[in-house]
């Protein structure tokens, strides 16, 4: 009896331990392949070069050319997702009638369930032609369309996390504000949003992290031309797109080209890892606030 219980506990513990192995696996793979990459390409060049052309004869390894693409599309997405997300959160939490809320919220959640490859198609085939009407000079592949669509995709993430944070504000605070004759707008933005600010910040950080790691939308709609630019109307390439581009082709295992995707991957990993940990940190402080 005792032995059986112990064996079961160990089996279950091993299941949990697989998640730790996963992390080790990720870190090991990224570091070992990147290490070999950086033995051939200096880290200084990796950071300071302005062009990324590992697949051409004249090879250059300036990650900034990819990183700028990632940051540009992410920034555009955030311009859409953050304000809309927070407005929707406040509206659904404080203003919307219960029936309206019960219908609109699940519909919004559908946005989060749609596979990203579908958004990519939508950006390329619907949004870009529409943008062409506004900006005739826009390219067929561009950061703007991909960024905008990515922003819409991320709205539910921001709105639902922010709404949870707003909902968690103690009722007494809300009542105190209404009790002094404040309007909903005043209560929302002067009391609730500040009180829920850490939770809302967490939602923003996770949204950024999500955008930075997003792959299919940008791979389909933003182009495959790495360049250091802030112009949203021309083709660019993100870190994720580059990994997809190399993976779709025939790259020999063990070649420098093969290793570039791990160097690109580790850059991405470090970015999202930092963002996620900042969000943990903020969340932890948030918890203390209310206890």
């Amino acid at each position: 009896m005792k032995i059986k219980e112990k064996i079961i506990e160990m089996l279950l513990g091993f299941c949990a331990f697989i998640t730790v192995l996963t992390t080790f696996g990720i870190v090991y793979i990224l570091f070992s392949e990147s290490y070999r990459f950086f033995k051939e390409v200096s880290i200084v060049r990796f950071i300071t070069d302005k062009e990324w052309t590992p697949l051409f004869a004249d090879k250059q390894y300036g990650i900034m050319a990819l990183l700028s693409g990632t940051l540009l599309t992410s920034a555009i997405a955030m311009v859409v997702a953050l304000p809309l997300g927070i407005i929707i959160a406040v509206y659904l939490n404080e203003y919307a009638h219960k029936t309206v809320r019960n219908y609109l919220k699940p519909v919004l959640e559908i946005l989060a369930a749609i596979p990203t490859v579908v958004y990519g198609f939508f950006a390329l085939m619907v949004v870009t032609p529409f943008l062409k009407l506004l900006f005739p000079e826009i390219s067929g592949f561009n950061a703007l369309s991909a960024g905008l669509v990515m922003g819409v995709m991320i709205i539910p993430l921001v709105s639902s996390l922010s709404e949870d944070a707003l909902y968690a504000v103690p009722k007494s605070l809300r009542e105190a504000s209404y009790g002094m004759g404040a309007t909903k707008f005043q209560t929302s933005f002067r009391v609730l949003v500040p009180a829920a600010s850490s939770g809302i910040i967490v939602s923003f950080i996770l949204a950024i992290s999500r955008a930075v790691g997003e792959t299919m939308i940008v791979a389909i709609a933003a182009g495959q031309q790495p360049r250091l630019t802030a112009n949203p109307l021309v083709p660019i390439e993100t870190i994720t797109t580059y990994i997809v581009q190399v993976s779709s082709g025939d790259v020999v295992n063990g070649s420098v080209e093969y290793r570039t995707i791990f160097a690109a991957g580790i850059t991405l990993f470090i970015f999202t890892f930092l963002l996620n940990n900042v969000s943990h940190f903020v969340r932890k402080r948030f918890k203390q606030q209310y206890e």
Binding site: V20, I26, Y28, I29, L30, G213, T240, L275, N276, N277
Partner: peptide, 19 residues
Amino acid sequence: NISNLAGVPSIIYGLLGLG
């Protein structure tokens, strides 16, 4: 560790699988 893993972009898992 698990909450960190949940935030790792899916394409990184691809690199893990590849390696």
